[in-house]
Amino acid sequence: MTDFFRIAWLVMRKDLTIEVRSREILYTTLFFAMSCVLVFAFSFVKEGRALDDAAAGILWIAIAFSGTLALGRTFERERHAETLRALMMAPADRPAIYLGKLMGVLVLMAVVELIVVPLVGVMFQAPLLAHPFQLLALLATGTLGFAAVGTLFAAMLGRARSRDVLLPVLLYPITVPVIIAGVRGTAALFQAEVDEPMVRTWVAMLVFFDAVFVTLALWTFEPVMTE
């Protein structure tokens, strides 16, 4: 069991070392997230003012879209010299590799959110600091759910043809609950009168979603990854 977490940690640290060196995924993903905010602002801003709930929607669209980009790039790196296969040869249960990659993606997405969330807050007058912990809970559980499904799919698409298109094709329908919960929960938090029970309901649903899908992903990783 200690081997399991040791290897997961090692894989994550390796991913972050590479990323810190090039910062390629971070910069491109971040820029892409900002582009999403900009593009969607055109459809949700009328006469200089954003429609109700637009901030929450735009925020989660930016997270989901840029997350897909980060997932694709992270696993593209492992394809370069077929290093994902080298990781699969590691003497630990294979789900450890999944966990390591998942943690790496989560750190990356967290850094992107660290910039995009305040940006959305400023541009759409969203009260970010009114209930910081609830916002944090929504972001954390939502991002985990999205990345948990995304990491498994991106890993297994590594050996499929047309993987670049197939990742969003598979990922978005399955993560619909995350998007709904993230958007509605955040909207409940951003509205004039904060609907706290509503926020709690959505966080609870996201926690359930995360628990089910992380378990399922750990469980299916080995059979799906054996060619």
Binding site: L157, R159, A160, R161, S162, L170, F213, T220, E227
Partner: peptide, 21 residues
């Protein structure tokens, strides 16, 4: 779509998708 365009071995990948679905 995955089964049709995923190439060889995509039946295993799509099985994962079905389970998640």
């Amino acid at each position: 779509l995955l089964r049709r365009y995923g190439g060889a071995g995509s039946e295993k990948l799509s099985a994962g998708v079905a389970l998640f679905g």
